[in-house]
Nucleic acid binder design. Structure first.
Lengths: 205, 205, 205, 205
DNA sequence: AAATAATCGAGACGGTACGTCTGGTCTTACC
DNA sequence: GGTAAGACCAGACGTACCGTCTCGATTATTT
């Protein structure tokens, strides 16, 4: 009787891509809160059921669509100075968040406050990969003798990027150079090995 | 001739208070995304029109209700050490945000990403007063010779509180003592006047 | 300026007239079902309370407004032939009902189906006066020897005007000459004294 | 190949019947002007959208509900005398209109004054079928030699039923035997071939 | 090549809430 | 001290989407 049937999940990859593309377009045009499953279905020429079959919520769909487009960006350079690499990456991030992507990131985080699945997806798919890359830069800095070996990379990243996200989410300017360099002074000096860190800081400011 | 006519808005104060109370109760019980104008009207025993008359959006109503309840909290102590006052206030904030209020703050910020009026209200009614208090503490620190006189208070506050909000909004633990003390080390040492700041830091960690 | 004291009720009459005028204008423009008390109050520059004070319902207000304008119309001629007077009056009525007044009469009767006060007002203020005039014409016909003395004027009027209102209310043409003359043939012949009634009709048709 | 595709409307017949039944019940209980779409939806256990999907207006819904219940009534007998059949049918009609159905008919016609769709539906679904039956009776009368062959059936029906509806709509008694027999005397005599009514007319015309 | 079965588009369905409109009552401030 | 202006509670309006549920019509293996 119970001859094991092969699981014939034949999901149509093309369909999923059409859905994600439609979702991202609508996300750009109208923002997350005017994104509706019905709208995506209509735009993608797809039945609502198909969307519900593959995504658990509107937020999950939006995050997926966002990731498909935005993920391959914002990498770190690898120059001689890890410290300088981090400084530059922070500025690239600020530049990107100053535009359309920033609006979508704001809305992703905003909507994630109301749906833990969305939050988890956004964390795992977006924030964590970025933190991993930052950790690698920090590790390089340690190995190159720039940073203290006992730093806690999670806390450093929180201290460095937290204020950027905070300003993004509270409507403050994200590309304020004075803000960015002050921030770097506190954090990067805080993790610097050189005794001159304090001195240099006082000199710079 | 043209004697200024008094504003003809004769809003009923009692009614508004009933509405705000009902809103806050529902906010606590069900969260912001299940807060509906109809629900508030029903709970408050009030016509929907009355709510729409005085608040431009659901978010604005929620912020007002939140402010009416939560505002008079989270003050700073005033001991001999401004630095210590700040440390303690950060911990009190973390403790409060670890509970119900934290959930509401997350949702306020979350919803503010979709409505600029809500964001403005939350900023002006909640965040700015808190920042003003923090600025006063910083100022006291300067006057007492604890902090550098040339610090930019806005940036210091961003650097100090930004990571807290970032962790709150990305689901990380808000009361992680290691995180908090590391953060303070970076920022408070960064603004400390004493040359020993760096030394003390290295000793502590 | 001119401090005109007292004159206690003087304002009332003027106010009522303003209200009735505003009502009739709105009745013409938008029809009965889009007539609202609020609209009338706004148009007349009057408080809603004032309207509610003097009229029990929207229908009653509409009927009053209608009567104030339309009443002094549609009189009977008094020629040698009562029969001919009636024939002519029916045609005048049909002509008037073919236009704007007809639309309002339709809507008055329509709304009267839902409010007995409106129906009573319309009956007493509009239909009965008209029936009284018709009865006078019938009476003259009896006295002149044109009509049978034992006719029941109410029933004659029902038979003569009923079909006109019926067609008005069911959307049929009200000025169909064949319809009108057939109708008159049945009714006026039915009440005619002379055997020659038939003759006269055949000559005419 | 290109065989006409069937209409993709997959309406659920059972749902529609539930809606019509609920509508009629509410119509009976509260009358047309207190009939609300929301009320019908609640009573029928149906979404409002479903009602709006299939009926353009409250009036159209009410007419449909009325037709579903009332249509199969008020037929004509077929005895030897067409004249007598008509007389009896008029009395049956008057009897039915004297009760609950009469109230609904009044309200249908009343509401039809404000919505041409409702008027058209009521005409086509209710009045015209009844007129068709009456025309058949007249035709039988002609063929049996009771009525003049040149009568215009539309006008005869207007003359016969118009006053009944007129009295119904103006609040007069609908079962007044004197009224009914007077009316029949005028109209049926007017179309009779037999010499009693007006001998000379039949000869000449 | 035919039979089989998951997947698809379409959209009807019972619902919830929206933001608006109006009803009828009650309140306030001016004249 | 009467009235305009309008706030108030109530509740229906017609619309937008929700998430579930059929429908046939593709397709893509499996037989």
């Amino acid at each position: 009787m119970s001859i094991e049937k092969a699981a014939p999940r034949r999901r149509n990859q093309a369909t999923l891509e059409v859905i994600l593309a439609a979702t991202y377009e609508l996300l750009q045009q109208n923002g997350f809160d005017r994104l509706t499953i019905e709208g995506v279905a209509a735009r993608a020429g797809v039945g609502k059921t198909t969307i519900y079959r593959w995504w658990p919520s509107r937020g999950a769909l939006a995050v997926d669509a966002f990731l498909a487009v935005v993920s391959p960006q914002l990498s770190f350079n690898e120059t001689a100075s890890a410290s300088e690499d981090i400084r530059q990456q922070v500025r690239r991030l600020a530049a990107v968040y100053d535009g359309e992507v920033g609006k979508i990131v704001r809305e992703m985080i905003g909507s994630a406050q109301f749906d833990s699945t969305t939050l988890a997806l956004f964390n795992e798919g977006y924030l964590q990969p970025r933190r991993t890359a930052a950790k690698a830069a920090l590790q390089r800095g340690i190995e190159q003798g720039e940073f203290r070996a006992d730093l806690n990379p999670e806390h450093v990243i929180d201290a460095l990027y937290g204020p950027v996200y905070y300003r993004l989410l509270t409507g403050a300017s994200i590309r304020d150079e004075a803000f960015l360099s002050t921030l770097e002074a506190y954090v990067l000096d805080g993790i610097s090995l050189k005794g001159t860190a304090c001195d240099q800081r006082s000199l710079r400011e």
